[in-house]
Design a protein around this nucleic acid. Structure first.
Lengths: 248, 248
DNA sequence: CGTCGTCCTTGACCCAGATCAACAACCTAG
DNA sequence: CTAGGTTGTTGATCTGGGTCAAGGACGACG
């Protein structure tokens, strides 16, 4: 079920220096040439803030490697993560100058950026970029809404399991297969960051992870490396009744 | 052909039979003619389900009058509202056949629909529609993410106040002004629907509304008609520190 | 008119998760 | 090697909001 052309399925594009889902259409060499003039790479260290909410943002871009988070904060310090950016995810908003969230590098991070003005011009002349961006944005909207169910209605245990499911699904999607059976991955976030994503405290996160370990839903090596002996069991714990996000 | 108006600011378009922000570019008469072939209206009664999650959806459209909700449900019945559709809001997803949520008419509802296939074709030939749709989708994404903060980190009282702020802001936006001072509106939702939106129970919603009334943050006539004597007080109760969503 | 059904309110009690606090397991620097 | 800084774990206690239960307000309809 590989989808060619303008599909949004992440594609094997390892020899393409763009690695930019919004722009790369079949890694077209001409396109590449057009883009060379306006694209550049940027690196950030773990913990560094890429953009502050409200700041002027003169670029759009996507994650090449590493992990970043989108967060919102209230004056009293309460923090909610509103997005988790993994490689290939897009950041930025054509048509608006101000950033709406803090973007923070959670690990060392490399981004592929485009200066915004020329990118917007490019969108006008190259319709598939806009179409691609629309599809990606609709996907993000679906993901955000699915997360609203997690935040609003799930228990702490279900939230933790849901987070693991999301991470496993995203990793599996990059390899274009469905997760199942026995799986292994590394938690890309600290307990505190998980808490901010899930609307919990870090203590509750820690306790629930311990509980899942105790009941052998997961196995832990160190604090970050997780083995899931039975993915369907994890799904059950997540209260997940979806078909894997593979809507017709 | 008229220069298309790509701004997303709601515009006075009362004599335009499309009333469809995604498509209507300054109510261009030519455009209208093109569209006549593929658009139609549909009415629903209060309580009627417009689309079930997972169903095939062969149209896109927008709300002309009335109110609809997008909800997600778990097998055990826990429900989370993930979107509130007011007049001019868009429903549907070009490029995908299955609906991702239940869409329910909360009041009597009139929708302006377009058959999906021709609409998609129209998008290809008329770039401004795609651009407009992208902007609208990005706005919805921002709204969804703002709601994640409400769901994940706010107290019950702040949630109720936030809901009222959102409703007042949306109403004010239609008249293109900022809400302030003494305001009046009708709650478009039952206590239960509010609970589903806010990730609370209906009892908690009722109690918090009573508390806000007791402390004169709001005045109630009947169960639905609300007067807000001081909008800034309500903002404070909502824990809202934004600039009114008017990012540069 | 009364009865039924929907929507809402209020009270009593309980519990999941927050809060407060101590400490353990690692780092890296010196 | 030790000192100090992160990050994570676990225990004790508290509390906001959930749950269960009773009843009120206000239709619509016979």
């Amino acid at each position: 079920m590989l989808q060619p052309d303008l599909s949004l399925a992440p594609h094997d594009c390892s020899d393409c220096p763009i690695r930019h889902r919004a722009v790369c259409a079949r890694c077209d060499a001409d396109e590449l040439a057009v883009l060379e003039g306006i694209k550049y790479y940027r690196s950030y260290e773990a913990g560094q803030t890429v953009i502050w909410s409200g700041d002027r943002m003169d670029f759009v871009g996507s994650v090449v490697s590493g992990i970043a988070t989108l967060t919102q904060t209230m004056e009293d310090g309460r923090t909610q993560m509103v997005g988790l950016l993994l490689p290939s995810d897009f950041v930025g908003r054509p048509g608006r100058d101000g950033a709406a969230y803090n973007v923070v590098a959670t690990s060392d991070l490399v981004m592929c950026c485009f200066r915004k003005k020329p990118f917007e011009k490019l969108m006008e002349t190259t319709p598939h970029i806009g179409q691609r961006l629309l599809q990606m944005t609709l996907d993000e909207l679906d993901a955000a809404r699915e997360w609203m169910l997690v935040l609003g209605r799930k228990t702490a245990r279900e939230k933790i399991a849901s987070l693991m499911v999301i991470i496993l699904r995203r990793e599996a999607t990059l390899n274009m297969k469905e997760p199942s059976g026995c799986l292994t991955f590394d938690l890309p976030l600290t307990r505190e960051a998980m808490a901010d994503y899930l609307g919990l405290t870090l203590e509750t996160v820690s306790r629930q992870i311990s509980a899942l370990k105790r009941e052998e839903v997961i196995l832990l090596e160190g604090k970050r490396h997780v083995t899931v002996p039975d993915f369907s069991r994890l799904l059950e714990e997540a209260g997940d009744d979806s078909d894997g996000g593979m809507l017709a």
